[in-house]
Structures are given as structure tokens and as C-alpha cells.
């Protein structure tokens, strides 16, 4: 659990982060969104003390982050940045081994951990372990960046625009991977992005920042239905807020009992995707069918539309 208490950062007369308080639950993903200059990156960087707060404090599992030197603190917090910052002079394996080495792990343990992570991130050790970063594609570099951040099994992972440099298709894949990995390792993720879609897609909780202040911190659906501030409403998008709301619910969650002869959709599809499919096919209802071919229920256009209202 990360507790941010009344955190501020001032440079001279300008206040970059202004009295932000929030609590991030364990085993969750919190997305911080805001325009550039909103102070979101500074807030993130105060958690691992790359930026020292001017006032306020940060507790991780009840311990004040100032209790130990900043560089020791950071060894227990994963950190991923835009453009991944891989060490160009070190191989993929060496890059991933960075923090375990700093922590003085035994060679054998490091080796095993590197092999495990390469496998998790679908990087064949035979061809990639000894490659240099510039020999990898952009998506692979990004995966190595995340693997490196996770190497020492941190309980907290901080990500600053981690997918910003990727093209849309690779970005979607990387976002899915992150969700998988978060479920698998169960760490607490705090992610900074300027992309509302990304925040909604990944965030268990979303924090909206503007001008250094935290405007609202809530579940995505609440942000859409009860925006605390006109700015939050603008950020979440007035024109397509209904569609956004639909994209927060999966077919599996919304399925009604019964079946029909409409097109089959997987339970993991969002209502937005199901609606789009129905529009495209000119059908009124869809069957929700899981991977084993069992019918899990049905969805009608009317039921979907009802979900799109606040």
C-alpha cells in the first residue's frame, strides 16, 4: 500500500505539485492522467524520490520513504520510463540483472531470475539474452525495460509514460501484457499517462491531475458518471463518455440469462465491442460464448444501451 500525504513540490515560486494526498491499494493499478505540466510525472518521481518533496510524505506499507537513503529505496521499487532507458552498452541479460546485482544476489539466483523473466516476456534466451538493446525492435526493448524493472521482485512498480514511444498496435499488446503480468506477480502499479483511453483500460483507479492538484481519484466508471470538476469531465471526454462507460464492462459481466441465435462474442469482449459487432451485423442480440464453447448468456442491444447511461 502506498500512502501519499499532502505532498507538494515547489521550484522557487512555482508549485508543480500542490498538496496531493491519495492511497494506492496493494495489488492494483493506479493510473495518473493529466495534461503535460500537470505535475503527474513529478508526483510519480516523488514516490521513489527521484524528486525530493518540498513538503508532505510518502509511506510504502507504513514505512516513511525517507527512512533510508534514496538510492537504497529505489532498489525495491521497479521503475519504467518512456523510451525505456536501457543501457546501450550492456546485453539484455545484463540489463535485466542490474538491480539484482546492486542488491548482491548470488550469481545463480540472478541467472535463474533473468531466464524466468525472458520467458515471461516471450524473449527467447538463446537469441536475445546476449543481444545488445539496439539489436531489438521497439516493442522488445520496451519489454526488456519492464523485465528489468521487475527483476528484483519489487512490490511496487512505477511507470512513467511506459508505452508512449510505441506504435498503436504494439502499444495495445504491451498494455495487455502489463495486465497479465500484474495479475501474475501481483505488484502494486502506479502508471503515469496523458492518454485517457490507456488510463481507463489499465487503471483500477484513475487519478486526474491539473495544475499540480489532484482533481479526482476514483474508479473509472465513477469518473465518467460523477465527474468532480468540469475539467475532469472534459478530460474523460463529453462526446463519447457513454461509449467509454460501455468499454469498462465486459460481456461476461453483463450477460443476461438465456440464449439467442445472434452472433457469438467472447466473455472478455467489452460491451462497446459487442455493440459495434451488433451494429455491423445488423443484429439485435449476441450470444456470449466462452473459450470452451459453452454459452454463458446473451446480450441485447437494449440491455447494452442501458449500461451506457449514468
Amino acid at each position: 500500500m502506498i500512502t501519499v500525504e499532502n505532498l507538494s513540490k515547489r521550484y522557487g515560486n512555482t508549485t508543480v505539485v500542490d498538496g496531493v494526498s491519495l492511497t494506492v491499494e496493494r495489488n492494483s493499478i493506479t493510473a495518473i492522467v493529466g495534461t503535460s505540466g500537470s505535475g503527474k510525472s513529478t508526483l510519480l518521481r516523488m514516490i521513489n524520490r527521484l524528486v525530493e518533496p518540498s513538503s508532505g510524505r510518502v509511506l510504502i506499507d507504513g514505512r516513511d520513504t525517507r527512512d533510508e537513503p534514496a538510492y537504497l529505496l529505489r532498489r525495491h521499487i521497479g521503475y519504467v520510463i518512456q523510451g525505456n532507458g536501457l543501457f546501450p552498452h550492456r546485453t539484455v541479460a545484463e540489463n535485466i540483472a542490474t538491480v539484482p546485482r546492486l542488491l548482491g544476489w548470488e550469481a545463480r539466483r540472478i541467472e535463474a531470475r533473468v531466464a524466468e523473466l525472458l520467458e515471461v516476456f516471450a524473449l527467447d534466451p538463446a537469441s536475445y539474452a546476449h543481444a545488445l538493446p539496439h539489436q531489438l525492435s521497439g516493442g522488445q526493448q520496451q519489454r526488456v525495460g519492464v523485465a528489468r524493472a521487475l527483476a528484483a521482485e519489487p512490490m511496487v512498480l512505477l511507470m512513467d509514460e511506459p508505452f508512449g514511444a510505441l506504435d498503436p498496435i504494439i502499444r495495445a499488446k504491451a498494455q495487455d501484457d502489463l495486465l497479465d503480468i500484474q495479475r501474475r506477480f501481483g505488484m502494486t502499479v502506479v502508471l503515469v499517462t496523458h492518454d485517457m483511453d490507456e488510463a481507463f483500460r489499465l487503471g483500477t483507479q484513475v487519478a486526474v491531475m491539473s495544475g499540480g492538484r489532484l482533481l479526482q481519484y476514483d474508479r473509472p466508471a465513477v469518473l465518467l458518471t460523477q465527474p468532480a470538476d468540469p475539467f475532469v469531465a472534459r478530460m474523460t471526454g463529453l462526446a463519447d463518455r457513454a461509449m467509454r462507460l460501455l468499454s469498462l464492462v465486459t460481456a461476461g459481466e453483463a450477460a443476461l440469462p438465456g440464449t439467442c441465435d445472434g452472433p457469438a462474442v467472447p466473455p472478455t469482449a467489452t460491451l462497446r465491442e459487442v455493440l459495434s459487432e451488433l451494429l455491423w451485423r445488423g443484429a439485435d442480440s449476441a450470444r456470449v460464448v466462452d473459450a470452451e464453447g459453452r454459452v454463458r448468456g446473451q446480450l441485447t442491444v437494449g440491455a447494452i444501451l442501458a449500461r451506457g447511461r449514468p
Binding site: 521513489n48 527521484l50 538510492y71 537504497l72 529505496l73 529505489r74 532498489r75 525495491h76 521499487i77 521503475y79 520510463i81 518512456q82 523510451g83 525505456n84 532507458g85 536501457l86 543501457f87 546501450p88 542490474t98 538491480v99 546492486l102 525495460g145 528489468r148 524493472a149 512505477l158
Partner: peptide, 10 residues
């Protein structure tokens, strides 16, 4: 980015 990553990793 490389320097930031180095500091960020401790």
C-alpha cells in the same frame, strides 16, 4: 533516459 533509469533503479 538511460541516466534516469540508472538512478531510478537505485
Amino acid at each position: 533516459a538511460v541516466l534516469e533509469a540508472a538512478s531510478g533503479m537505485g
